[in-house]
Design a protein around this nucleic acid. Structure first.
Length: 241
DNA sequence: CCGTGATCATCT
DNA sequence: AGATGATCACGG
């Protein structure tokens, strides 16, 4: 990986290595643990990345920062961030109580060639079967640079969780395969919801149902509800009430 | 344009 | 306050 020189050279030239992709999950987890307790500002500075005042126009900034810090692939690849390890990286914004502030985006929903898809080979399952959660302090009152990174959690769904995910996914996919994606709202799904995922509400994309018909629809994505990600985190991190 | 990284802005 | 629907930036 390329190294780079940070801006200030008054004391010495600070050369920071862009971490190479980790070879093992132990290495990835170790690296993620070493970020815990640091601020986003510290990590950004080490990587020579400028820090935005707010995330209004930089919505994916934290996620991309942590991804770079851990040597994840930087692309539009529709699969886990660490393909060799089969691990997906997700930063998760926490409020002052330590609870998730937002839903968690999983992936775009295919609108073609969906007939006969199985849960076991779905993109949702492939992304969620092993996730490295990296909590980030995300109260808006805290300047972006001062927000702390928390202890990471390498998680895989347990049987109950996987069953819930599968059930939701199958219900959503059945509607979609019948050409009824427009009928799906974010109210549906116990833990996995379907919400718009586009640059704007005006975007339209061709889809097709099992009869080969096409229609224009607003692109959608799968998201995990905050109540579910909260459950994931609290399984492992006990915090006082 | 599309999929990734997500959070924003508004309504209930 | 919490959730839903809408939106922003970037790389390919």
């Amino acid at each position: 990986m390329a190294s780079q020189v940070t801006g200030n050279e008054t004391d010495q030239v600070l050369v920071q290595e862009r971490p190479a992709p980790p070879a093992t999950k132990e290495e990835l987890l170790y690296n993620a643990c070493s970020l815990a307790g640091k601020t986003l500002g510290q990590v950004a500075h080490q990587l020579g990345i400028s820090i935005p005042e707010n995330l209004q126009h930089k919505k994916g900034w934290q996620g991309q920062l942590i991804e770079k810090a851990l040597g994840g692939i930087n692309s539009t690849f529709a699969g886990p961030d660490f393909p060799e390890l089969g691990i997906e990286l997700k930063t998760i914004p926490l409020d002052h109580r330590g609870l998730p502030k937002e839903s968690t985006y999983i992936c775009a929903i295919e609108l073609s060639d969906i007939y006969g898809q199985l849960w076991e080979t779905s993109l949702v399952y492939n992304k969620l079967k092993q996730v490295l959660w990296v909590p980030v302090e995300s109260e808006q009152s805290i300047p972006v640079a001062k927000r702390h990174i928390g202890m990471p959690l390498l998680w895989s769904p347990n049987l109950k969780q996987e069953q819930l995910l599968k059930t939701d996914w199958e219900e959503h996919m059945e509607k979609i395969s019948l050409g009824r994606i427009a009928d799906i709202t974010a109210h549906m799904g116990n833990i996995l919801q379907v919400r718009p995922k586009a640059a704007s509400g005006k975007i339209r994309r061709k889809g097709s149902n099992e009869e080969g018909e096409t229609k224009d629809t607003l692109p959608r994505g799968f998201y995990l509800r905050p109540s579910f990600t909260s459950e994931i985190l609290t399984q492992h991190f006990i915090h006082p009430a």
